[in-house]
């Protein structure tokens, strides 16, 4: 279980990285934290000619507070996000979700950009960008593109990134007046989710005034379900509302079956988790208001 031969290069700037990506295109493969890529290399399931190691590109590792936005460099370690008090305060949904990624030993190396660019449909970060309405900043030698998650995540392990482009930053808008929750069901702690739900709500007393629901593990890309969100809006998050949401979720999602769970399981559990996440988010909203 040893990787096939490759050539290795370690740029130190974004500029150098882009030139390398531009030069090698499909034959080059950027290496971020390596927690998903290196297993594939070791199993010879990925066989790039050139491995472009981004770990020395220091300028891509940062968490910037820009008041209404928090910008995170693509090479920022997941562990840094987890431990950031800024993220905890301004992006509690991200802070909560990042703890579901693997284990501390994985998050010490794994990066925000790496996880997003890998685009595993069961991963935690993609759905967080979706629900928070983040912007993904993509650079190439030709210029910079800013993509919405809906545009960035194309299919199973596929993004809108061209081979010569690099995801350099994620900009998260700060939603101060919301309650959020992230829940997932995984076979074991630290495993990829069978189903995961990210929820964000605003409440007026017992009544939900706005809701966002994002799902992971239930299709080729993370998805939001506007119908389910509308079903929550303007209503109390009681058993009847949540029951209706569960039914909508089960009806609207079109997940896959695999050796760990059937499509039926994923639909059912997504509906249940949606309700639990909404309730938790609403509780947190109230606590926040009360505080």
């Amino acid at each position: 279980m040893k990787p096939a031969p490759f050539q290795y290069t370690a740029p130190e700037t974004v500029e150098e990285s882009l030139v390398l990506l531009h030069t090698f295109r499909e034959e080059g493969k950027p290496l971020a934290g390596g927690q998903s890529l290196v297993p594939l290399l070791n199993m010879r399931l990925a066989r790039p000619s050139v491995l472009i190691d981004l770990n020395r590109v220091r300028e891509l590792s940062y968490i910037h507070d820009e008041d209404a936005t928090v910008s995170i460099g693509a090479m920022t370690r997941q562990r840094a996000v987890e431990l950031s008090s800024l993220v905890r305060e301004k992006l509690p949904l991200l802070a909560e979700a990042v703890r579901y990624i693997g284990h501390p030993q994985i998050r010490n190396r794994g990066t925000v950009g790496g996880s997003l660019a890998h685009a595993d449909p069961a991963a935690e970060l993609p759905v967080v960008t979706l629900v928070l309405g983040a912007q993904l900043v993509v650079r190439g030698l030709e210029g910079t593109r800013v993509l919405r998650p809906e545009e960035f995540f194309v299919s199973f392990l596929q993004t809108a990134l061209a081979p010569e482009e690099l995801l350099v930053e994620v900009r998260f808008p700060v939603h101060r007046t919301y309650g959020t929750a992230f829940l997932e069901v995984a076979r074991r702690h630290g495993d990829y989710a069978l189903v995961g739900v990210a929820a964000m709500v605003q409440m007026d007393g017992e009544r939900c005034t706005e809701a966002r629901l994002g799902f992971t593990g239930v299709g080729p890309v993370p998805v939001r379900l506007p119908e389910a969100e509308e079903a929550a809006t303007g209503r109390p998050l009681d058993d009847s509302t949540l029951g209706e949401i569960a039914r909508i979720v089960a009806a609207r999602l079109d997940p896959h079956s695999d050796i760990h769970a059937s499509a039926t399981y994923r639909k059912e559990v997504a509906g249940i988790l949606a309700g639990r996440a909404l309730r938790l988010a609403a509780e947190r909203f109230k606590q926040r208001e009360g505080a």
Binding site: R187, H189, G190, D191, Y192
Partner: peptide
């Protein structure tokens, strides 16, 4: 947690610790 899953061609689908699940300290 632990099940070796073979498909109808006799291919083992659970060939890694990602898919063959050993209990951890959490389980």
């Amino acid at each position: 947690y632990e099940k070796l899953v073979y498909d109808e061609n006799g291919q083992l689908l659970t060939r890694t610790f990602m898919d063959y699940l050993l209990p951890t300290a959490m389980e």
